[in-house]
Amino acid sequence: MTDAPDPWNDFVRELGVRLLRARAEKRLSQEQVAHAAGLATFTYRKLEKGESNPGTAANPRLRTLVALAEVLGVPLQDLVPAPPEGLAPGR
């Protein structure tokens, strides 16, 4: 185990910021977005925080991201940040 920071943590935090901004622009509550995307409100809240469990980076399914982009009215590529560089596939 290494003490080096995991670049995926920054990636999912940025995803959460983008979700929050898009939701605020639409003036929707977390509950409204979650319901419209077919998610539990708890799950959506965790995505905005960028985590799945405390200390564990979120890892949403593609289907979830597509549904959220649709609900929020933003292109998927605007919602999802560029992946961290230099990572081995599968990380």
Rank of each mutant, 00 (worst) to 15 (best):
A36Y: 08
L68E: 01
R61N: 14
L28H: 05
L76D: 10
R61Q: 13
N59H: 11
T41V: 15
E70R: 14
A69D: 04
R63V: 08
A67Q: 07
G16N: 06
K46V: 07
L47E: 07
V71S: 08
E25L: 10
L47D: 06
L19E: 05
A69Q: 02
L72V: 05
A58W: 04
E31N: 09
Q77Y: 12
Q30G: 10
E70W: 14
P54I: 15
G55R: 11
L39R: 05
L65K: 04
Y44D: 03
R27D: 02
Y44R: 01
A40C: 05
A36H: 04
Y44F: 09
P54D: 15
A34I: 01
N59W: 10
V33T: 08
P60F: 05
L20W: 09
P75T: 08
V74Q: 02
L19A: 02
V17G: 08
G50Q: 02
R21I: 14
V17I: 12
Q30D: 03
Y44W: 04
R23W: 10
R23Y: 10
V66S: 07
A24D: 13
G38Q: 01
R13P: 08
E14P: 03
A22I: 09
Q77L: 02
A40L: 12
Q30F: 08
F42C: 12
S29L: 13
A24Q: 15
V33R: 02
Y44V: 00
L20F: 11
A58T: 09
K26V: 02
R45G: 13
A57P: 14
T64A: 01
Y44K: 03
R21N: 15
E51P: 02
V66L: 07
K26G: 10
G73H: 10
R18W: 01
G50T: 00
A67P: 00
L39D: 12
L76H: 13
G38T: 00
D78F: 00
P75D: 14
P54W: 12
A67E: 05
R45M: 10
F42E: 15
K49M: 12
A37I: 05
K26M: 06
P75R: 12
V66N: 11
L62F: 11
Q32L: 12
S52T: 15
E25Q: 12
V74R: 06
R63F: 00
Q77R: 15
G55A: 15
K49N: 09
Q32C: 00
Q30S: 04
L19D: 08
G73P: 12
A22E: 02
L47T: 07
G73C: 00
Q30L: 05
A37K: 03
L39C: 14
R18K: 15
T64P: 08
A67H: 03
V80C: 01
A58F: 01
V71N: 02
S29P: 12
H35N: 07
L62K: 01
L15Y: 00
L19T: 04
Q77H: 14
A69W: 01
L62D: 07
E14T: 10
A24K: 13
P81E: 12
L68R: 04
K26L: 11
E48V: 08
T64Q: 00
N59Q: 10
L65N: 01
A34T: 02
S29G: 08
S29F: 12
L79M: 06
L72I: 00
G50M: 02
L68T: 03
E31V: 07
L15W: 04
E48Y: 05
A40V: 08
